[in-house]
Design a protein around this nucleic acid. Structure first.
Length: 209
DNA sequence: AAGCCGGGGGG
DNA sequence: CCCCCAGGCTT
């Protein structure tokens, strides 16, 4: 068994006993996942919960959002900060309505053509919704892998080629959906940015940090 | 490769 | 009061 398989097994086992619960963990609707991933940009998950509920209630699908009043949409999202995101939601909805017949695509190439969707959001949709053999890197997962493999990368490590390469190897699994949530929760709760809880880490014996 | 956006919560 | 947070876009 290689190193990646071992990590996957341990992280998934840890996840089965320590998973966080959020409203968007109970849906496979690609639209809802896209919306919440937009909201989670540099924003704490707890802060997103009420806004997400309100947003989905008012704009339940691509078409309702595409034809919505931008000012009204901004009112829903304003307390998330990063105010440019208000237009961002509608632009993505318009693009998907006009180019993909209101159906969110299931390939990375097509997802990346949508304004506001980058590698992270695309990967999240592909794994969480479609359970594809795809990959996801965010700042938390990047930090965990950087420590675990002793890469010693600095700066915006989530964009580094070497890190993406390792992530793709880690995602050689048929359980990409579970793995994404597991990595997000583990890196947020155990392998934290400051004061990581190494004493209760289930992969510490193989960690080079 | 680096700067920028932003309100809100925690140290 | 300061710092950070499930990124993507622009230069």
């Amino acid at each position: 068994m290689n190193k990646e398989q071992t990590i996957r097994r341990k992280i998934l086992l840890w996840y089965s006993q320590n998973k966080r619960d959020f409203p968007w963990r109970h849906t496979k609707n690609p639209y809802e996942i896209m919306i919440v991933e937009f909201m989670l940009h540099r924003t704490r998950a707890d802060q997103v919960v009420p806004v997400y509920r309100d947003f989905i209630k008012k704009y339940p699908d691509i078409d309702s959002l595409a034809s919505a009043d931008p000012v009204e949409v901004s009112k829903v999202t304003e307390n998330l900060g990063l105010h440019w995101r208000g237009k961002h939601f509608i632009n993505a909805a318009l693009f998907i309505r006009d180019n993909f017949r209101s159906k969110i695509p299931d390939s990375r190439d097509k997802l990346l053509t949508v304004p506001g969707i980058g590698d992270y959001v695309a990967g999240a949709i592909l794994t969480v919704v479609f359970n594809k053999k795809e990959w996801v890197v965010d700042s938390n997962i990047a930090r965990f892998l950087n420590r675990f493999y002793g890469l010693k990368l600095r700066g915006e490590i989530r964009r580094k080629r070497e890190l993406i390469k390792i992530t793709k190897r880690l995602y050689q699994t048929t359980r990409s959906e579970q793995l994404t949530f597991a990595l997000l929760d583990f890196s947020a709760m155990v392998c934290k940015p400051v004061k990581p809880v190494c004493c209760s880490c289930i992969v510490k014996t193989k960690c080079t940090y």
